[in-house]
């Protein structure tokens, strides 16, 4: 169970939070002007990368505020937490995540290091 640093309440256990899916998915400012495809992508499609992922959390059993986080999905390390109103951080701003391979498999922390190619 992760420890997530709520920008308003401080570090708390993951059970107090609810994951809110991908962050920075903009709602089209004029829904009437977008095509069915564009609108459906906003409603239904979210990316699912292995590695750096920008996501939202809400402190549902705490202050009930929404905020953003950057998490390495292969190790579950939360690299940064920032407020909903803040700009999307650039990769350079982030703590050193140990992504090394093209597929995003870090040497330490993903738990899959034992699987070797023979």
């Amino acid at each position: 169970m992760l420890i997530i640093n709520c920008p308003y309440c401080g570090p708390r256990e993951q059970c107090e939070f609810t994951n809110g899916g991908e962050a920075h998915v903009a709602r089209p400012s004029d829904p009437e002007k977008v095509s069915d495809k564009e609108w459906s992508e906003y409603v239904f499609f979210r990316s699912n990368p292995k590695g750096i992922y920008f996501e939202r959390w809400v402190h549902s059993h705490g202050c009930k505020k929404w905020f953003n986080a950057v998490r390495d999905t292969s190790t579950d390390k939360v690299l940064k937490v920032y407020e909903i109103k803040d700009e999307k951080p650039s990769l350079a701003d982030l703590e050193n995540s140990n992504l090394t391979t093209p597929s995003g498999e870090p040497e330490v922390g993903s738990g899959n290091f034992t699987v070797r190619k023979i």
Binding site: C9, G10, P11, C15, E16, H59, H61, G62, C63, K64
Partner: peptide, 17 residues
């Protein structure tokens, strides 16, 4: 250090908000 005097918090106790 996490819950100093004269502060408040919202959390779960016994799975109750």
């Amino acid at each position: 250090k996490h819950f100093p005097l004269s502060t408040s918090a919202q959390t779960l106790i016994g799975r109750v908000d």
